[in-house]
Design a protein around this nucleic acid. Sequence first.
DNA 1: TCACAGTTTAGAATTATTCTAAACTGGTTG
DNA 2: CAACCAGTTTAGAATAATTCTAAACTGTGA
Lengths: 143, 143
Amino acid sequence: MAKAARESKNLTALTTSRLRQAGLRPTRQRVELASLLFRDHDRHVTAESLHDEVSKAGVKVSLATVYNTLHQFTQAGLLRQVIVDAARSYFDTNTGDHQHFFLENEGLLIDIPGETIAVAGVPAPPPGLAVERVDVVVRVRRA
Amino acid sequence: MAKAARESKNLTALTTSRLRQAGLRPTRQRVELASLLFRDHDRHVTAESLHDEVSKAGVKVSLATVYNTLHQFTQAGLLRQVIVDAARSYFDTNTGDHQHFFLENEGLLIDIPGETIAVAGVPAPPPGLAVERVDVVVRVRRA
DNA sequence: TCACAGTTTAGAATTATTCTAAACTGGTTG
DNA sequence: CAACCAGTTTAGAATAATTCTAAACTGTGA
């Protein structure tokens, strides 16, 4: 077996067990999307961009499935949704504690490691409410 | 002239000059929307919510005009757009330095004064980019 | 009072996203 | 290993927020 094929098989096997552990049936589509997504640990995709990517790779997956899958992965804790743009939703393969630069012009997200930024003085939330997350978005533009 | 009418006339006059200063022609619709918006200094509205409010007040303004006006006011620096919800855009009458609690369940925004929260350690942006704003959103839920 | 640039508007158009109902497919069972 | 079925995928319709368009209207300066 050629090296590339061996690696691909390996990736598929890894992805499959990762999905199973997350309680998701490893269907062809989910394995293919997950393989693309989790190849790198700091990817930021849009439903549209991921659909383009998977399509260009010659794989046939409907846009509806991409949406479904992104939401399922998010619920399973494999992805995190990032809300920075009124026009579309981003999903981040980095689910750990971290923040973002957002390039408003290009619609590009860049991770800022969690230890880098410190947010002090967050007041106690109104009674009966629990803090779920503190998001910091550093909006930047081409000067 | 009755007290209420006198106050209303006063508000209208104030609003009118405020709009003129912002370089916006004080049309009936703009004056009416501005009067509602800037009565309080910490309002958070949605195009839909503002349109409902103005309609219930018996004023006839189209939804398209509400959208136009919110964007014009934002460009003129009278409002600030807040992006916290993938489903809709919020506009904030507080344009100063401050942050927000966002009640995910209710879709409600609450201001956190600018001095309260301190963000330290924001890294220099990638070359050629300038920081435009640092947004902090404290997402909370009913416990 | 006139004229016109700037506004408003109804309704169509657009765009991201979700829904629906029918076809399909992993995984399990006999 | 064949049949079954709950869970998935899909095309296309539906939805919802927002923007666009072209025609009617209105402040404002002369």
